[in-house]
Amino acid sequence: MDWQTLLDYRLNDLLMLSPEVYEALHQSYLQQYAFMQWCFWLLLLVQVIWLVRYPVVLQLSLALTWAWLAYGYAYQTLSQVILAGPLFAAFLTVQSFIYLVLAVASKLNPSILRSASASSFKFGIAIAVAGIVPWQAIVAGKAALSLSYGMGILPTTLVTIGFAIVHCKGWGRWLAISIPILSSLAILILLFGLH
């Protein structure tokens, strides 16, 4: 890949794909992994009701979720049409490792965790639950883009931020949400370029 020549192109030139292909790709992804969508809905329910009391296990489950996004979404799906897909997948894999590290660090030193106030606990959980809504499909009016928690970057970022509000503080919170926020920005730029 030649990065220097990338500067010669405009954003929509660089995307190299059409909205038609983007939608068809997501439709195919959702059809192929429909059972994963059910699994993630169930996981979110378990996370909100039960795992939220066990931050270490919650962080391990988030590590698994980001690992799936890295492999199933970025590497297997986006990489089919986006040259930077493998790089994006590597970026999301780092996030998965960060959650593994946070889980180990939390176990060894529980003081890095936060005891959220009742109001911020409710706020964090509300944000996390909002991850089940396929916002992208609603905004675009396209059922093919019904990505919810675990299947797409934007809803998973919402859930991640929600749980970070509940449990993380200081540098731990930034570690937990930086890559998800940057990845969401990348997806938003992609959508902006396409439409």
């Binding site: 190299m16 794909l17 068809a24």
Partner: peptide
């Protein structure tokens, strides 16, 4: 350019 970048989607 763009038009044939359809990945592995068989229908496309």
């Amino acid at each position: 350019w763009i038009t044939f970048n359809v990945g592995k989607i068989k229908s496309l």
